[in-house]
Design a protein around this nucleic acid. Sequence first.
DNA 1: TTTTGTACCTATAGTTACTATAGATATTAG
DNA 2: CTAATATCTATAGTAACTATAGGTACAAAA
Lengths: 137, 137
Amino acid sequence: MLSIGDLSRKTGVKVPTIRYYEQMKLVTAPERSEGNQRRYSIVELERLTFIKHARDLGLKIDAIRELLDLSAHPEQPCADANRIAEDHLAATRDRIAQLQRLEAELVRITEGCHGDSIKDCYVIQSLSDHALCQDGH
Amino acid sequence: MLSIGDLSRKTGVKVPTIRYYEQMKLVTAPERSEGNQRRYSIVELERLTFIKHARDLGLKIDAIRELLDLSAHPEQPCADANRIAEDHLAATRDRIAQLQRLEAELVRITEGCHGDSIKDCYVIQSLSDHALCQDGH
DNA sequence: TTTTGTACCTATAGTTACTATAGATATTAG
DNA sequence: CTAATATCTATAGTAACTATAGGTACAAAA
Ligand SMILES: [Zn+2]
Ligand SMILES: [Zn+2]
Ligand SMILES: [Zn+2]
Ligand SMILES: [Zn+2]
């Protein structure tokens, strides 16, 4: 049996985060020691490893909950699991595209600044006036 | 004089957000009407326009506060303003790079799924096992 | 076996940047 | 003048944690 600290070290999920996941019912409340401390088994280690990996890939808690529910029914078709992953991929791509537009504006803005005084600074001017921008964020 | 609703329409910042910015001292408390409603002038319209644009470009409230402080001193050199913009550009690029790594993994994961049952689903398997991944997020 | 140091417990509040709600008051158009 | 809309304050909710306080459990050394 693993203490919450052991589980934390093995998964890379911080101790308070593990407790938070328990509150959010992402992980079920584990057994307790005589002194009321949490004791985990391999099942819970695997579940938390799954959660950690999904979070690292940027999936939201709700999506992870759905995926965990799905994986409890091994004989069911996996269309829903795939859809969740595809949706997240699409959202990730949208976010990248948006950040790239911002990047382009920020390049333009920083390159326009030649270290003058604030009143002549292109950074400040650009922030004051969106008309100077090339796209519509 | 503009009501808070007028200011909201002209800047695209929602009414509760304007009040929130006042609380956060990003904008100073404006004059009030006889009936205690906020009344704004052009100065405040310009300041909020600046804030909106900076937020749209992804700058954090603290960075915007610094930029506003700087722009109150027109004769000072603009090195700090440029540094804030450059830092934000660097952070934006880091975020893009990270999201692109996630994107690559998500492509691999979704393409590996061929619509079988959950127990054979590559989406579920990939989430369970980071060793299948190509990089280290 | 006792001490000591770390780990653990619960409950609560703080983080970021808002958004939503409720219940009361102000303003404006007809 | 009345009705509709806008505004007011205060408070709570959002996502996903993180930090803190005050107290208890556990494990290894003395
Ligand atoms: Zn400059
Ligand atoms: Zn712009
Ligand atoms: Zn599949
Ligand atoms: Zn991975």
